[in-house]
Amino acid sequence: MINPLVNLFSYGCIGIGLLFWFWGTAFLPSRRSVLFKLHMLSIADTLGSMAILLGLLLKRPQEWPLLVLAIISLAIWNTVLGYVLAYCSTTEATHD
């Protein structure tokens, strides 16, 4: 049985994560620069997903190895992808 406080906290984390997902992704169809959208996506996809994973971790602590690995790989890969996309998209802009 899960402690109700822990349950509430985990739903809070998942709620914050979903809020970040919707808010950060909502800027995608707008006419902003790639870099601005990249900032927003780093909120949505990295921080939002990490919050959702934390919520899941509180809910199902017996699956912690998988979820911890997911949090680590999410943080590293999404951040590095953000850097690579920023690098590649701006070199193209200066060369044109």
Binding site: W21, T25, L28, P29, V34, K37, L38, L41, A44, D45, T46, S49, I52, L53, L56, K59, R60, E63, L66, L67, A70, L74, N78, L81, L85, C88, S89, E92
Partner: peptide
């Protein structure tokens, strides 16, 4: 969107979101 970098951004977002959804389903 026709611009290739905007498309790449969208694909990056799709990739991590689908992975998160399947992780959620697995839990």
């Amino acid at each position: 969107d026709e611009n290739i970098w905007q498309k790449m951004l969208a694909f990056a977002s799709i990739a991590s979101k689908t992975a998160m959804i399947s992780l959620f389903v697995s839990v």
